[in-house]
Design a protein around this nucleic acid. Structure first.
Lengths: 136, 136
DNA sequence: GTAAACCCTGTACCTAAGTACAGAGTCAAG
DNA sequence: CTTGACTCTGTACTTAGGTACAGGGTTTAC
């Protein structure tokens, strides 16, 4: 199994090198083995994990929520039912996000379609309705 | 048309009063009219705007992205084609977010289903695949 | 017409999520 | 076996997005 120095990992994952050490401190990455001289050696799949973290952040998950998501798979001692419940909760979160995004998209779609026909946009109050469509 | 003092608006919108002044400085809310004594008087639809901002934030939009979204409707002078292009770009963003969320959801769904049947989760590397499924 | 409750501006402070050194040690290519 | 690129720990700084006063004026309810 290949392994990566922190600098290589940072380049492959598209993040700053210091960010990796930060994630390690914050328990988003587990402490990697070291060379005799103390250099970190990360398993190559850490690249995927970094990319996952970035993606989840862009979707509005905080680092501690992401930590939880990742922990769903990593805890050997936890009970199935417990994990299952937490996964269901995450799924519900995600579905809500999808619903909101879908309604934002529809609203924007309307905007572009409707405004093909009408003149200046000043009195096209479509986005004003976004918040309504989007409410629970 | 009813109007709201800043304190009422804050309560109705579920945000801190200082946040409203902050949003005004940051041009997410336009400067409201004032009473003779200098008190802000917000139109009631500002409540909906506040709620929209909060929702969009939860979906990972930064305040400046949200400012752009809101501006899609507010600029009377802009050209239709220009606005249309920006709306299309936002729609593409949103669709990408939806795709990523959908694949996260499916992965989690898999996790709960599969682990109904299997024993301890330690070697259920399902989430490890999230980052792959989720890549572009 | 005076408290209590509100709001004003301005400035300082806070948290999350990084980023940037400094000073010192390690690795690897020639 | 040295030189340049890399990494280490530790501490300090930064940015976005707020929050919290202080000191003073305004409204409203009696």
């Amino acid at each position: 199994m290949e392994s990566l120095t922190i600098g290589r990992l940072a380049r492959l994952g598209g993040v700053n090198l210091e960010t990796i050490r930060y994630y390690e401190r914050e328990k988003l990455l587990q402490e990697p083995p070291r060379t005799p001289g103390g250099y970190r050696l990360f398993p190559t799949e850490t690249v995927r994990r970094l990319r996952f973290i970035k993606r989840a952040q862009e979707l509005g998950f905080s680092l501690s929520e992401i930590r939880e998501l990742l922990a769903l798979r990593m805890k050997p001692g936890s009970r199935r039912e417990h994990i299952r419940a937490r996964a269901e909760a995450k799924i519900a979160d995600i579905e809500q996000k999808i619903r909101t995004l879908t309604s934002m998209k529809n609203t924007l779609r309307n905007l572009t379609e409707r405004c093909d026909g009408c003149g200046p946009l000043s009195d096209c109050p479509i986005l004003e309705s976004l918040d309504e469509e989007v409410s629970e």
